[in-house]
Design a protein around this nucleic acid. Structure first.
Lengths: 216, 216
DNA sequence: GATTTGAGTGCACGCGTGTTCACTGAGCGA
DNA sequence: TCGCTCAGTGAACACGCGTGCACTCAAATC
């Protein structure tokens, strides 16, 4: 065993984490479906067969990465909701949160964005399911907002869907960004802000137009 | 040689097409980056080494598929522009065109949607470039529309970007659809229609709100 | 009709892969 | 201190891969 002064369980956990981290890094470069068990084990500093002490297969590792990624995402949203600023300026705050969060957890976002349509069917399905869940969760948050609380749940769901789609799309952009170009980051943040504004305004006015149709 | 009554060039072309078609079909199931030269050759009814008579590598085949896919897409848009109905009801027509086109060229759309963020860097870059081109082309078409012709080119570009993003997103949905479920197709068509309406209305009103800001 | 061309063949190679199995030796409970 | 547990080892395997090379033999050219 490489390490010297460590409890048994702690060492196992460390290797477990090293495997996940290695897979995440390699996925960023080549895409999850392209990387091999041996590459992951090698980068984690462990012999290929040791991999099986932690995961049954690469597929299981992939699903673990999905879980880890969405845990990050959820923690982020939960923190954001505690900030009262968010309620007053939902759009500006969302754009800020989005870009910052993606920057800080670039690897996880990149993984989700890529493997959402990637080559591993199991991982793809898991991400799609998590995203659907996330849309519903966001809809619940939105429904509590002033003005929106009177909307039908179907309408709120649709706005949430547009928001999440936008989030995924911009997350892709940020993830593709080279490091140390704050100007480009600001540009994306600005684009996200404007597009969210368009969605909110468009939705409000489309709704009132539809209501007028109902009246006549 | 398998075929009997064919000129030499015609037979070569047929094999060439068979390779492209085989790659497209296999990509649909496994993703382009996962499939091997041998699989493609095998499905095209040809020995692996014969592959090299047509493409230098799988990467070159991938780029050829990108070209083919966008040629399909462009032909479609060009045809649509000839239909006067499109100018009057741009949104309804777009939704209709989108769903029909994806249904009829599901393989190509699926390829683009998937490999846009797929495992082959060269293919990914090529698709991203074509998509950027497509946004600009759509912006030119939109700019000629009534009401829109007064907008700044930057604003038109942004609407085009939102439209294309929506198109890609819905193309993904349609491509994932099981066959023979016209109800689901109609649902997606409806969603696309409503979302495009939201974008157009939201943009118009956001623009006039901004103009009011300039005035004061 | 003889000669050239070139699409498709068949074999061989070295390599990286996932998985098997018997093993080692440090950590930990008795 | 003894003995069990089990994370990590290392050799071996069968397999599919991309690619090189010498080949065949019908179509095209002369």
């Amino acid at each position: 065993m490489p390490a010297q002064a460590a409890a048994r369980q702690a060492q196992k956990e460390r290797t477990h984490e090293a495997l996940l981290h290695a897979a995440l890094e390699l996925s960023r470069r080549y895409g999850f479906a392209q990387i091999s068990l041996r590459q992951v084990a090698g980068r984690a500093g462990v012999v290929p067969t040791a991999f099986y002490r932690h995961f049954d297969s690469m597929e299981q590792l992939g699903l673990a990465l999905v879980e880890q990624s969405f845990a990050t995402l959820r923690r982020m949203i939960r923190d954001a909701q505690r900030d009262p600023h968010v309620f007053d300026h939902i759009i500006d705050a969302s754009a800020e949160i989005l870009v910052d969060a993606v920057k800080q957890n670039r690897a996880h976002f990149d993984f989700v964005a890529r493997e959402r349509v990637g080559g591993s069917p199991a991982v793809r399905r898991a991400i799609q399911h998590e995203l659907d869940l996330f849309v519903s969760e966001l809809a619940i948050v939105l429904a509590r907002l002033p003005h929106i609380e009177t909307w039908s749940s179907e309408d709120v769901q649709m706005v949430a869907r547009l928001f999440v789609r936008n989030m995924v799309s911009h997350a892709e952009e940020v993830a593709d960004l080279p490091d140390g170009r704050p100007d480009l980051e600001e540009r994306i943040k600005d684009g996200a802000r404007r597009e969210m504004r368009v969605i909110v305004i468009g939705f409000r006015d489309w709704r009132s137009a539809a209501r007028r149709d109902d009246d006549r």
